[in-house]
Design a protein around this nucleic acid. Sequence first.
DNA 1: CGGCATCCTTAGGGATACTG
DNA 2: CAGTATCCCTAAGGATGCCG
Lengths: 159, 159
Amino acid sequence: MAGALEPREGWVAEHCPMAATLDIVRNRSAFLILREAFYGATRFEEFAELTGLSEPVTAARLHELAGDGLLEREPYREPGQRTRQAYRLTEKGADLLPVLVALMQWGDRWQRDSRSRVEIRHRGCGAPVTAQLRCAHDHPVSGDELELAVRRGRRRTSP
Amino acid sequence: MAGALEPREGWVAEHCPMAATLDIVRNRSAFLILREAFYGATRFEEFAELTGLSEPVTAARLHELAGDGLLEREPYREPGQRTRQAYRLTEKGADLLPVLVALMQWGDRWQRDSRSRVEIRHRGCGAPVTAQLRCAHDHPVSGDELELAVRRGRRRTSP
DNA sequence: CGGCATCCTTAGGGATACTG
DNA sequence: CAGTATCCCTAAGGATGCCG
């Protein structure tokens, strides 16, 4: 009962949306699977091949991501073959796109020797796409223009 | 020589900036440490307490993040105390902010029961800040407006 | 060929005790 | 208070082999 991954105490860690998100996509392989799903992969073999993950890990991740509602399975059948599953992003899964784009961006900037094989563009307009911080008034926000406001009412005190 | 973490083959995985980024912030604890650094923590005990991580893990992560240039150590000395280290975000570390904000956002939207204790606002303007996808022409870009362009020249074939 | 079961190695992380 | 050292358990993931 000792062991890992249960945060020790945690009114802080608990209910933190970032930590909660990392509980879903907790590992590198999940990100890689999602990346390929964004890039258009749908079949088991594509995921395994393009991510470089082993088949067992690929299978485990696909199931977990489907179970968490980020991917949905869609049975398909090629003539003369048995029924197989295609995996497609759900809205919930696709909503992680800003995270992935932001990760890629950071790598492009700071990790020498890493360069995405895919460029993301705005359809039609053709301009490259980046993840940016914006305020609700649409101002671009840089790191030093941030203000942190601690929320009051530590939940269940909403009078 | 078997074992983990060396991607099996990987012209795909290799040089992917997202994977490269995840090689730096590969684990949950690294994200948690960075979160607290963004929230203003600088001292060892703050990190350990606010993240809920054990001291050994906190120490390991702080060292790794400093070694990777995301945090810098700054010796300080309180009167009558020995010299201690403060840990502050570097520009490289602060540049991960969009990733963290995007993760938080996703959790806020999709993970019921998770709600950040801190709201991020634009200083002065006061409006809440979100991570968004924008193209270079400043159009907001939604998931279905994306176009993927495979880069030509698989490195070292630039002519 | 797609997919799972088994096995083994390594990395992540808590508990506890200890040091300066 | 600011960490280290040790110990032990769990999660991640590759290799291999099996099965429909």
